[in-house]
Amino acid sequence: MRCPQLQRLSSRFLDGDLGAERASAARGHLRDCERCQRAVAAEAEIVAAARSLPSSPEPAQGWDVLWGRVSARVAEEERADAARSAASLWWRENRSRLTLAVSAGAAFAFVLWGAPALPALGPGPLGLVPGSSSGGDQAVTEGGPERDGVGESLAERGARERAETDRQFREAVSELEVIIAEEQAFSDGARADAAGAELGAIRERVRGAKAARVALPDTAGRPSPRQDPVYEAYWEELATLQRAAVGVSDGEPGAGFRQDPAGRAPATGPVTGDDRGGDGPQGPGGARDSAGDGEGTR
């Protein structure tokens, strides 16, 4: 073992996470390398100091004061929820599910789009046939349909992903229609009427999206997911649903859904930490989503 290797493995060595052979090699290297000895000793000292820190400081004003603030905030937010419209509450509960559905479908569309560019290595883990096409719901190659290894071609899976996204959207529109009809019956109705008009626009858009799907070109002429009319329509539908539910106009926080080339939800989109239960992904060293709330922040 040499210095760079030991430096790369020092944390695992200190944590006892190296196998017996590599741990022995590390100990052997440390016997004769003063520089690595110093580095490992310094790291060990930092780790020991970290582990001996008290497990928790305490709030300066005491635990009861903090609890008072927490319970007051929770009460305040629940009262604010009580004042929201039923459509708005529905949107807050469902927007992350819908966004995830579109993201998953669009991401798979991106994979499909990139498949022809994969290196020609013969049938691989995905069963891709070199030089084959992967576009269109009916794509069949010389060697037969592209298979994902479990008996379903990539094109078939793409069609299934789209059908699932489509089903979720249709369910969402139906649910929202019922809620808005109730609001029209029990309120002054102005905003509910506007929301109903938005839903009418959605239904028109659905027809257009289905027509675009049928016309989706195959193989080399197929557009990239950035221009894929199906997923572009879905993203627009999300924005329309949001407007119908909460009355947010374009340009306001969270109103603009945009897809990126990988089909992910937009960084400034309306899915917030709260929507994910506050537990959205944040890998170590990564940047945190600071998305605004579609209805304004607290």
Partner: peptide, 8 residues
């Protein structure tokens, strides 16, 4: 954090 926890 506690507001998110209790509401979530």
């Amino acid at each position: 954090a506690f507001v998110r926890i209790l509401r979530g």
